[in-house]
Design a protein around this nucleic acid. Sequence first.
DNA 1: AAGATCTGGGTTAACGATTACCCAGACTGT
DNA 2: ACAGTCTGGGTAATCGTTAACCCAGATCTT
Lengths: 337, 337
Amino acid sequence: MTAPVTIADVARLAGVSAVTVSKTLNNTGRISEQTRARVIQAARDLGYVANPAARRLRGARTNLVGMVVPELVSPYFAEVARAAAEAASSAGLDLGVFTTSRDPARERERVAALSGGLADGLILVVPTDDPQHLDVLQRSRTPIVLISHFGTPTDLPNVRADSYHGAHAATTHLLDLGHRRVGFIAGADGSSQAHERLRAYRDATGERGLLDPDLIRPGNFTQRRGFEAARELLDLPDPPTAIFAASDATAFGAMDAVKDRGLRVPQDISVVGFDDIAAASQSHPALTTVRHPIHDMSDSALRLLSGALAGEAVRGTVLDYPSELVVRETTAPPRSS
Amino acid sequence: MTAPVTIADVARLAGVSAVTVSKTLNNTGRISEQTRARVIQAARDLGYVANPAARRLRGARTNLVGMVVPELVSPYFAEVARAAAEAASSAGLDLGVFTTSRDPARERERVAALSGGLADGLILVVPTDDPQHLDVLQRSRTPIVLISHFGTPTDLPNVRADSYHGAHAATTHLLDLGHRRVGFIAGADGSSQAHERLRAYRDATGERGLLDPDLIRPGNFTQRRGFEAARELLDLPDPPTAIFAASDATAFGAMDAVKDRGLRVPQDISVVGFDDIAAASQSHPALTTVRHPIHDMSDSALRLLSGALAGEAVRGTVLDYPSELVVRETTAPPRSS
DNA sequence: AAGATCTGGGTTAACGATTACCCAGACTGT
DNA sequence: ACAGTCTGGGTAATCGTTAACCCAGATCTT
């Protein structure tokens, strides 16, 4: 039950004033080498860490950045959080991750509490697309960076993942291999990313006159639904020879269905996923998929935030990161060709 | 760039003093209905949210709980974080998740910063087992709850996941099905959980005189290593008819290897995992595995923390949650029997 | 009817750290 | 030798909120 050690404790032990301790530890003001050494020693001995609340209240920096994500269980968000934590760490910042469970009210509270007095800056992943909410964000004094916000435009810096190009490339890849019937298992309704992926699939197949509505199945990003939807596709009178799933999990479900039918991937059926989660490269055969440059995105988000913290003007910046196709082992030319 | 609205702004608008606003909003002290209504209205109009830093500094509660985890990418920690966030939310608390990347120094910093002035309480998942570090934790004034700490004993409340029983049950399950050669793919060296799982496997096979060191392969919890290790096992002169993997990811890798050999799960080879990650129930065939009662554990951890926050004596509490076998579709009697 | 009690709200101080400002002594230059 | 500069460090004020006290007027006692 030891009370936390304060700056006064350190000052007492070092035989100086609290101000001198503060100056020493923050490298501000003039301090002699002797005193500096004494202070640092005392701080170390006591295990002193400045109280962030006090620091923040005084207007100084906390070096804490808050990240608000819808949830953490889907590998995508987990990966974004991890990449951001690493980027933050190498920028000398700490990252605290807060989840909203996709509850707009909770998102508002989190943002208010964090920007009000805990964090130096905020990174919002897929913020709720509510004009009023976004307006509040825009007026906030604490720097905010958006990740993958696609709705109502704002002038907040926004780092976006562009699903379209990757999805288009993936579909084209299958077409180029010789597939003429490529099935698509969609993502969740209402997700802008899901919408983009479907649009790209439609465009790519349409360009070659190979668009068949029967080959498009609804989905929800889950593995289970991937399994079912793939079954539906395989049960078609004229089944596809390749399946493009809107997420890796869905693709794994689809692969399960293919194997369950006694067919082989990729010899009988090619499968492509989307996201490049960790399991994609580790499964066997390794999944051909589309990768969001999550690391680059998180790096950029943190660079923008650091910039804003340092007073740079970052308003209006929009960084679009194209997704890219990663060809592994689950795609091959169709049997017939 | 609106400056955050402070309690003084609300006071001014409502025509009262700051203290009255504080009392009203915190339901402390006597306030007339009239005044109360005016204050609440003003606060709402201004969108006032108390500055957590100031509040915390004054010694009042932040309603923020910090959770420190090694990382977030492995589904296990992601799930623990999610369950804790839900439990926190229903206890009226917010949960901020911080990662350490398994860096002890970073863990110490995080804990110091959080307990020093950000969070009301802390939940530490798998804390570094350093006596000195643990001593600091034990002296901390802010309540701390440990999750799955197995090393140096402390009197901090500790909610533990017991891997042993579940792993023993899993092995016995395979043995009861008639398997006489059960392979084991271990977890990462140095993980106490990995050690317990191996110990249980050894005990369970040993009890029936079926322990064969050749059937034990090193692993590291990854899918890739599961694939390789399973190959090694299948290449044995007298290969196992069942494989018990120390994690679900490893089990998936093993299943890949089995299928890659043209064998079927569970007809030719049974596979059991450990953790019951989301993909376990969604894959096909659905994975037989061992589940940690993560939700119960997180609930308990938060209950303990809330209790401590409310002044209850929770020191010394140790809750051991047994892991339990979940039989799904990847286990069956061996071919020969 | 005069003290006691209650009501509703204000005053003051404090939390821990930082910043702006100040000052004593040592050193410089001419 | 005396004003100016530099060095090293201290004092006071401040951030936003709340707990501990206090007090004026209304209401209640007997």
